[in-house]
């Protein structure tokens, strides 16, 4: 079976349970003093990489976690290694990168590190763009399976992916190398155990400046402003089912 050298990109984002607040200058969302975590979809991609290794111990030879972001993204990479990634690479930058820029960085990492399978989250919960995996597949000219809910690696190195589509699911078969993006149903990510967290501190983590990758990462989009959505006012409560129906009629919904 073809050796699998997996790349798992992860992103440090505001924790999913935190309600984000727009900053006073309306230039973005307030991140100072806010709890940050690994993007939930990226936990699924790491989990899947580890499960692939558990199912095919000799086939998966290396799992590399990658992140592009501030120095603190090292914490996210340590989490990835505590879950089971072998090593990590950080492209350090203090500016927010757009998906196209990240895809170009990943394209370089795939070449430099000789990867043949990239598993990403289907979207990050901050930008909600849902683009990076597909862009990477396009840049590399590789097959892509997005919104995966099941991944099976077959004997001949073909990868069978069940993907979530509108109204149900479809099954695709990809040749390697390939790009897969994880949907929520793919798996249930494990918690990193304390011994594994300790071990992860000793695993190699390489830091490089984004500029060292020799990739054009300039922004194509200018953020004009960021605002809070118009608030909805709760309309109060009714006493019983009769009141519910009457109020819905008043509102023209029935």
């Amino acid at each position: 079976m073809t050796a699998l050298r997996i790349l798992v990109p992860v992103k440090r984002v505001i924790d999913y349970a935190v309600k984000p607040r727009v900053n006073a200058a309306q230039t973005g969302v307030e991140t100072a003093g806010v709890k940050m975590s690994m993007n939930p979809f990226d936990e699924l991609s790491i989990e899947e990489a580890i499960r692939l290794r558990e199912r095919h111990p000799t086939t998966v030879t290396d799992i590399l976690a990658f992140s592009a972001g501030p120095a603190k993204a090292q914490d996210t990479l340590r989490t990835a290694m505590a879950m089971g990634a072998d090593r990590a690479l950080l492209a350090e930058t203090d500016t927010e990168l757009e998906p196209l820029a990240v895809a170009k960085l990943l394209q370089r990492v795939v070449k430099d590190e000789d990867r043949n399978l990239v598993i990403l989250g289907k979207q990050s919960i901050d930008g909600d763009a849902g683009q990076t995996g597909q862009m990477l597949a396009g840049l590399l000219g590789w097959g892509q399976a997005t919104q995966a809910s099941a991944v099976v690696v077959g004997e001949g190195g073909r990868v069978t992916v069940t993907r979530e589509v509108d109204g149900g699911e479809e099954v695709l078969e990809l040749g390697l190398p390939a790009v897969v993006t994880a949907d929520l149903r793919l798996n249930e990510p494990r918690y990193a155990s304390l011994p594994n967290i300790m071990k992860a501190k000793k695993k190699p983590l390489v830091k490089r400046a984004v500029a060292d990758f020799g990739v054009e990462v300039g922004a194509r989009l200018q953020t004009v402003k960021v605002v809070e959505p118009a608030p909805r006012k709760g309309g109060g409560k009714v006493e019983d089912v009769g009141g519910l129906v009457a109020r819905l009629k008043e509102l023209g919904a029935l």
């Binding site: 309600k19 984000p20 901050d126 402003k225």
Partner: peptide, 8 residues
């Protein structure tokens, strides 16, 4: 963005 908690 941010699950509709901000509009960019």
């Amino acid at each position: 963005i941010y699950a509709g908690n901000a509009i960019a």
